[in-house]
């Protein structure tokens, strides 16, 4: 494995982390769309509280992926942005509207909460679809400089749907953990809307629904791949590592479902992450050595060696700064809240 392959691996890693973190933030927005019943308000508050401190950091994985792409594989970035101009513009509009709607509804005063809720939810649902469609078109090569709508084909549509389902599934699992870990927390007595067992249960049911949607859409992807990208579909079973990774994904999926049914949310979260990672890894292995189908390979599109030689250490250095900070961020906000009177309470409010 040479420098181009290593950097391509980093690029895939950034994309995977984006889907696991930023993607789930979009998924949380999808559940906002379905917030119903007596606990609709509590559901929305849980989503908002879970997103607020972390969504911007999660979002940066997408930037990292783009920057690594245009630095290390400039012709691939050019090809991607020309051929897939339309779904990328749609993706960006979703990113802009989701991010702004989230802060507007949080800070815009009492009546704006209601107004921005729907923008937030709809943008959250649409964005992962276009992200998935772009990845699908990159896989099948259903993209062309001459026909900007060539990506409207079975595989990109199927991957778009699967990406949406995946984000929703991950989000529901995370939110079930979030709700159950805050039951009877510090503010439990004073806050009538603090998470309850019923709230955790709402998200358990949603996680199971997301699991089913993911299974169905993945089956759809398999069928579409046979129609659209037979070479890729074949490699899903024959490429070294692809089949074993697929098996890991399937096993983790079954185990995650069991954990969810039993209400073991933390375990379910680990399993869902394994499931998603193995699924995407199997996909990536089958796609390699292509970067952008049909014509651009990892080696063929790589920048001159000098660039990769510098980029490598920069990325390692960056990871040494970013990963510990990110870990700390998650620990501070995703750990159970401190008890009242805890010396960590810094401000008098």
């Amino acid at each position: 494995m040479g420098a181009p392959e290593l950097i391509a691996l980093v690029l895939s890693g950034a994309l995977l982390l984006y889907i696991l973190s930023g993607g789930a933030d979009f998924g949380a927005g999808i559940w906002d769309l379905f917030a119903r019943g007596p606990r609709a308000h509590a559901q929305r508050r849980l989503v908002e509280g879970a997103l607020a401190p972390v969504w911007e950091a999660n979002h940066v994985w997408l930037i990292v992926a783009v920057v690594v792409l245009f630095t290390a594989f400039p012709p691939a970035f050019a090809a991607l942005t020309i051929r897939l101009h339309v779904p990328l513009v749609a993706l960006l509009i979703g990113v802009v509207l989701r991010g702004s709607a989230l802060v507007f509804r949080q800070y815009g005063g009492p009546d704006s909460a209601h107004r921005w809720q729907h923008v937030f939810a709809v943008a959250s649902a649409a964005t992962p679809f276009f992200l998935g469609a772009v990845l699908g078109a990159v896989t099948s090569g259903a993209a062309s400089e001459r026909d900007l709508l060539a990506w409207i084909a079975p595989l990109p549509i199927a991957t778009g749907a699967a990406a949406t389902a995946l984000c929703a599934y991950l989000a529901a699992v995370y939110l079930a953990v979030e709700a159950s870990s805050k039951i009877g927390g510090a503010s439990g007595e004073t806050d009538p809307e603090a998470p309850t067992r019923e709230l955790a249960d709402d998200f358990r049911r949603r996680a199971i629904a997301g699991w089913i949607a993911l299974a169905v859409t993945c089956a759809g992807c398999a069928v579409a791949a046979h129609l659209d990208a037979p070479r890729f579909a074949g490699r899903l079973f024959t490429a070294a590592w692809s089949a074993p990774l697929g098996a890991v994904a399937a096993a983790a999926a079954v185990a995650a479902l069991v954990a969810l049914v039993r209400g073991r949310f933390r375990l379910a979260r680990v399993l869902a992450i394994v499931q998603a990672s193995a699924l995407l890894a199997a996909w990536g292995v089958a796609h390699a050595p292509l970067l952008i189908a049909p014509d651009l390979t990892v080696r063929g599109a790589a920048a001159p060696p000098v660039t990769l030689r510098i980029l490598g250490p920069v990325l390692v250095g960056g990871a040494l700064v970013v990963l510990p900070s990110l870990y700390w961020l998650m620990r501070v906000f995703k750990a159970p809240p401190p008890r009242p009177g805890d010396p960590r309470s810094g401000s008098p409010t």
Partner: peptide, 25 residues
């Protein structure tokens, strides 16, 4: 230009990351 000025953009990306993380905190 990507191969030439990707370097400052990559450094920028790392700076964004620290900025977003510590802003959340």
């Amino acid at each position: 230009a990507g191969a030439i000025i990707g370097l400052p953009f990559s450094l920028e990306g790392i700076a964004f990351f620290t900025e977003a993380i510590f802003l959340g905190l």
